[in-house]
Design a binder for these strands. Structure first.
Lengths: 213, 213
DNA sequence: GACATCTCTTGACAACTGTCAAGATCGGGC
DNA sequence: GCCCGATCTTGACAGTTGTCAAGAGATGTC
């Protein structure tokens, strides 16, 4: 944990919930860390480099975090917490199955455009968790929330289509995540054209995930 | 390249094609490197560690390879060259569509059982290629051969089924690779049971990849 | 204003990294 | 035997890493 008593928010505050200055600094550091991590990857992002892209000096990291691993885990958790709601609007606002497919495909492509460094960082950390035990638990937990996020889309799509899903949550997530990762990979070399390809794939694949009415 | 004139095999040899002692040592080193890389991952596998798991000392690496990157690329190429034929027997020997699905699903599960470290290394390097330009070209090339490998399976499956594929090579590879990677990830935590799940997923998903006759 | 606590910087540490050069060792041709 | 090139080891280099301790600065309390 931290270097102080852990301050589980609202330790005697009125209403605005300032979450403690300590926690705010942690988040601030995490946000800086995400920039550097997304640019260099887990292995090559040193604490000095991370601190260099922040308003602080390199020593301050160990005041707010026990070690590099805790900072990284805190950072990716902080980022992914925002992400898991990315497709909720799609699910909520789509009135027909076709509309949902279009909105989902567009959103997938857009997030690669907007946040490619964050996505490659996520895949980097998930892969590192196959080598480093310290990462495994956090990564597994986040991955489960992503699977749930995708399942909300697929399940709603099935409902709107009046047909049952033909695959389970894990398979649906695995397949779509595979396509997404592939698109991300080639996007970093080939750029924009890849994304229309991804949208087309999603339009093809989503219907395949449903069975007969 | 190397530290010597590059010896593109058979520089005046009779028949057994000894490929040159130089190239044999390169391969020998590459095979040792694969062990260490598969255990520690790209970032944490140092040249000293790699050499330590080989019959040689750490300095010899730079006699056979220019730098770490060339060694790693040579190693993964060496490994994947053997891999791309993994499912060829399945394609060749299956007489019915159902037989092919079964054989393919079994083979996928078996290679996770047998070569998990090599597979996680591959995903590690592919992810690193999103951060390191020096890896990109080799990774992209290998990935294309894997896509072709998967397509041979899917295409043959379509033929045996008397139905056309409903998705292209890229999408088929992306989806199956996603499932495979997911299975690998959870296999490293949960072990054997995951693999029967993977087989089940493949039995479900492959038929979904075909259209109407 | 003085004290105490929180916050942050600076500088150092030991360990480790990829790289390379100098030289030892080996093997075969004469 | 001797020599020469190929092969390999040893030891060093400059740089980087995560970590931490000592202390400076800030902040709020009495």
């Amino acid at each position: 944990m931290s270097g102080r008593l852990s301050s589980s928010y609202d330790a005697g505050v009125t209403a605005t919930r300032p979450v403690d200055k300590f926690d705010r600094r942690r988040t601030e550091l995490a946000e800086s860390a995400l920039l550097t991590l997304g640019e260099l990857g887990y292995a090559r992002a040193s604490l000095r480099e991370i601190a260099g892209n922040s308003p602080f000096s390199h020593g301050v990291v160990h005041y707010y975090f026990d070690d590099k691993l805790e900072l990284v885990i805190y950072s990716i958790r902080h980022y992914k917490a925002r992400c898991v709601t990315r497709y909720d609007a799609v699910v909520r606002d789509s009135a027909t199955a076709g509309e949902l497919v279009e909105a989902f495909a567009a959103k997938l492509a857009q997030t690669i455009r907007d946040e490619a460094p964050m996505h490659r960082l996520w895949y980097d950390l998930r892969t590192q968790s196959m080598f480093e035990d310290g990462l495994r638990e956090a990564i597994t937990e986040i991955d489960a929330t992503l699977e749930a996020m995708i399942w909300r889309v697929v399940d709603r799509y099935a409902t709107l289509s009046g047909r049952p899903p033909a695959v389970g949550p894990a398979a649906a997530y695995g397949m779509l995540d595979g396509l997404f990762q592939q698109a991300l990979l080639t996007y970093l070399s080939a750029g924009e054209p890849v994304l229309t390809g991804l949208s087309a794939q999603v339009r093809t694949v989503l219907p395949l995930m449903l069975g007969r009415p």
